[in-house]
Computed example of a mutant assay.
Amino acid sequence: MSVTVKADACVGAGQCALVAPDVFDQDDDGIVILLESDPQGADRTAATRAARLCPARAITVSEQ
């Protein structure tokens, strides 16, 4: 699995950091920060859920 983010598309909703805190964080402006680009186990499921919840579609999850 590969996770990528488009920080310039992020609107700062914060759903990603709430749903997958080991994979995503937010900077001082609320913009997404990717902590783990290849999550494992439960973090994989959480990252996929975060991508679905992102209102800006700033998160992409793909299988390698």
Rank of each mutant, 00 (worst) to 15 (best):
D38R: 05
Q40E: 14
T4H: 11
K6S: 15
P55R: 02
R49Y: 08
E63W: 09
G41P: 08
R44N: 07
K6W: 07
R52L: 15
A46S: 03
S37K: 08
C16T: 14
D8W: 10
A13Q: 03
L34W: 15
A46I: 06
V11R: 04
R49D: 13
A50R: 08
R44P: 03
P39R: 00
A13L: 08
R49E: 15
Q40F: 08
Q64G: 10
I59W: 11
T4Q: 08
G14D: 07
R49I: 05
V3C: 05
G30K: 02
A9P: 00
R49P: 00
G30Q: 00
D29E: 15
A56Y: 12
S2H: 11
G41S: 06
V61G: 02
I33Y: 04
A20M: 04
R44D: 14
C54P: 01
L34M: 12
V11D: 12
A50C: 11
C16F: 13
G30A: 05
L34C: 08
A51Q: 03
D43N: 09
A46D: 05
K6M: 09
V23I: 06
T60H: 02
D8C: 03
C54V: 11
S37Q: 11
C16M: 06
Q26W: 00
S62V: 14
I33R: 15
Q64V: 11
E63G: 09
R44H: 05
V3F: 14
A58C: 11
I33A: 01
Q26M: 03
S2P: 06
K6C: 02
S37T: 13
S2Q: 12
D38S: 11
A20K: 01
P21K: 13
V61E: 04
L53Y: 14
A50G: 04
Q40C: 09
C10I: 10
A56D: 06
V61Y: 10
E36N: 15
F24I: 05
A46V: 07
A13Y: 13
R52M: 07
G12C: 03
T4P: 04
P55C: 12
R57P: 08
A50T: 04
T4G: 01
L35A: 10
Q15Y: 15
V5D: 00
D38W: 09
P55G: 12
R57Q: 14
Q26V: 05
G12A: 08
D29A: 09
V3T: 12
I59P: 02
A58V: 02
V11E: 13
L34I: 13
G14S: 04
I59F: 12
Q26N: 00
L35H: 11
D8E: 15
G14R: 02
A58N: 04
L18V: 14
V23K: 05
V23L: 06
A58Q: 09
A42W: 03
D28H: 08
A47P: 01
P21Q: 12
L18R: 12
D43M: 08
